[in-house]
Simulated scan of single mutants.
Amino acid sequence: MRQLPEAFNAHIEMGATTMCRAWRLTRRDGAVLGFTEHDHALDFDGTTFEAASGFAASEARVASGLQAPAAAVEGGFSSAAITEADLAAGRYDGARVELFLVNWRAPEVQHALLALQEIGEVSRAGPGFSAELRSFAHRLQQPTGRIYNRRCDADLGDGRCRVDMTVGGRRVMALVAAVETPDRLVIAGLPDLGAGHFRLGRLRFDAGILAGRTVAVEESGATEGGAASIRLWLPLEAEPVVGDPVTLSIGCDKSFAMCRERFGNGLNFQGFPHMPGSDFAYSYVSGETTHDGSVLFD
């Protein structure tokens, strides 16, 4: 049970109170922003909570047990608070949100932390946005551990995969040469590479409005004059600037055949390529098959 300071508790019990809500948002890059639904800025707990930010609470659901309650906040874009560019670049994805109940007449001594949440799904409509606030209990619903699968579950080049990404043009630094459409870029400064070299790979923006953002590559064209066309799986919500530095990495379809033939890394394959499929699991003994426990594949 949450214990409130005696003076704060007495103020709440008065009935006619001077209460409001405030949110402290901590992004993954360490930036801290404060917002309040009050009409004046509030200062407490080492943070300034800005008013006139357009923030307002909407629907909230509370559940008992280990269910993950959810709430939402709505707001408008502001050059002094949340910008459309930052939201489009994903800088608020997974941000930590602290919800406070505050007596705006004495915020320094009469405030209480009500909930600790993180930003989930964010949707935009016209000049505003709506952000889902998820309880940390939702992490209990996320899968943990490994799942038996024919395909590899490691990331190309990580400690489990062990593929050396520094050789053979597997990872190259380049520049944005043109933005043809939100999902198609021309990347310059590349070595001579064949068509499809970066297919299923990754493109990371190293500077600019999308700095730190990594997106998936669907297809890549052949390098001509040091430049190649790159098609992304999803369109970019923010447009990079010509000259922005990027890092391109080759991809893998997670199959045992590609791991063995393209990378020579079959010994480190992190899947189960010889696992019998559903057709075998649901089969039955017949005179045409042998079920003697012998090895299925050599």
Results as ranks from 00 to 15, higher is better:
Met275Arg: 10
Phe100His: 08
Leu66His: 12
Gly264Thr: 06
Glu218Val: 08
Arg150Val: 12
Gly128Trp: 08
Tyr282His: 12
Thr166Lys: 05
Ser64Tyr: 04
Lys254Met: 07
Glu239Ser: 15
Gly46Glu: 04
Leu193Val: 12
Arg28Ala: 13
Phe280Asp: 13
Ala227Cys: 09
Glu59Trp: 04
Gly196Asn: 10
Arg139Ala: 03
Val179Ser: 04
Ala211Ser: 15
Phe297Asp: 13
Ala71Tyr: 00
Asp153Lys: 00
Gly277Tyr: 05
Met258Trp: 01
Pro245Glu: 00
Ala16Pro: 11
Asp43Phe: 05
Asp45Asn: 13
Leu190Ser: 09
Leu4His: 08
Val167Trp: 04
Arg24Ala: 10
Ser249Arg: 04
Trp104Asn: 10
His291Cys: 12
Gly225Phe: 07
Ser229Lys: 03
Val163Ser: 08
Arg134Gln: 08
Gly189Trp: 07
Gly243Leu: 06
Ile230Lys: 00
Ala85Gln: 11
Phe263Met: 07
Asp39Tyr: 06
Cys20Phe: 06
Cys20Ile: 03
Gly126Val: 12
Trp233Ser: 02
Arg61Ser: 11
Phe77Ile: 03
His197Thr: 14
Leu200Lys: 04
Gln67Thr: 14
Leu4Cys: 08
Cys259Lys: 01
Asp155Trp: 00
Ala228Pro: 07
Cys152His: 03
Ala216Thr: 14
Phe55Met: 15
